[in-house]
Design a protein around this nucleic acid. Structure first.
Lengths: 126, 126, 126, 126
DNA sequence: GTGGTCTAGACCACG
DNA sequence: GTGGTCTAGACCACT
């Protein structure tokens, strides 16, 4: 299930990438599962195929999905948990930004930790 | 002190906003303190004044800074911690995205909480 | 329909903001309606796109309009009537100024009330 | 008594003009009363004399005050209530803008009238 | 096509 | 000196 926010400033193709990853995290999608073709998903989401293709391309680059010619697209069999220094740095920077906003809204450290654990738990089958 | 990452995809004016907020959080900048004039900061950062002006205007809108006509720009006396439902929603969504990336890198809940508290503490004088 | 007064000391981008709001009030523009693209309106009004963009961004910030990436700009579906203490204070101060001017022109309380109700009724579909 | 808001976007000299007019309306200042010299008021308000001078100049143009060389500045003896078509048009336009903002904040016609009468009564000795 | 960002430079009002 | 506005034009990402 993919839910898009067309009004968001976040690009549609990025939203698709995130939603697929989220579905994997939550185990709605498991290794080997088929995912809709570019055209099908484009029709379903009422967007142009190019946007879906862009998302799938990036997901494939990140080895989350695999395309088998003539068969379709599938969740990769081995989704590897690999640390990535560069990406980690990015994530940290983004987290700092969001945490700062929370602090500006009056969130204490404890409230932040609660919020974070809540989001983390809701995200996965722990 | 404002440090820009000119290679970042994040707009320069947003980076300025963040850096100023961060400096306030860390109490490098205190209520009533003057911040550089639009032109001075533009020279210092080697960008056009318009970009700095855009950042300052947004900061003023958020009531982080105040401008006094013909005098200059200053950190607001009363920086209010006001909850903003819409913004909070945005922040939560962004946090979910980042947490997901962390999880894909193998971060457990405990590791995430540790990372978060680390960033939070480093960000401010708690 | 947007009419500008190029001689006015009021910034053009503010005039655009007002005119759009007025059109919404009068229900010439309804939720979901598309408004002209930045470039089109700029051509029509014979001003630079940047000025229109500035107006649109402020309108979006006020949640009067919504932009959908690559599609265009639309009147927001839910225009919320939200009280804003700071803004209300500003409005009151401005009203006081204008009322004072009216009084200096000899307007009695009754005349003022009549004038105000006239303007109010003309402004909207009550 | 003159109260300035140095943070306001409204120019200081305009604020002085308004405050003087308001004091006349409220009869704190009566025809023939002396008002402080440019220098004195500048010292009192902690602004540069030029700004005060600009305000006084405009007040004199509007025949609210009169300067007598060597004697000082005084409230004009005959403050005339003269209708001014051009000014009235300006005032109406400004009122429309403010009323629109009130309506966006959820003010009904009755609430607007109440607000207006309140401001009007508070402004003068009726 | 759309809006978003940035540049380079101008003019203005204000203090 | 300050910030605010506007122009003219460029490049970019997204759909």
């Amino acid at each position: 299930m993919i839910i898009l926010d067309y009004k968001s400033s976040k690009p549609i193709y990025e939203q698709i990438i995130e939603q697929v990853k989220l579905n994997v995290m939550r185990q709605y999608l498991k290794p080997g599962d088929a995912i809709p073709s570019v055209r099908k998903l484009a029709l379903e989401l009422e967007i142009t195929p190019g946007t879906v293709a862009k998302a799938y391309q990036e997901l494939e680059r990140q080895q989350i999905i695999e395309t088998i010619r003539g068969k379709g697209t599938f969740i990769a069999n081995e989704i590897q948990l690999k640390p990535d220094e560069k990406k980690l740095f990015e994530v940290k920077k983004n987290l700092q930004t969001e945490l700062m906003e929370l602090k500006m809204m009056g969130y204490s450290k404890r409230m932040v930790v609660e919020l974070i654990t809540g989001i983390y738990e809701e995200m996965c089958v722990c």
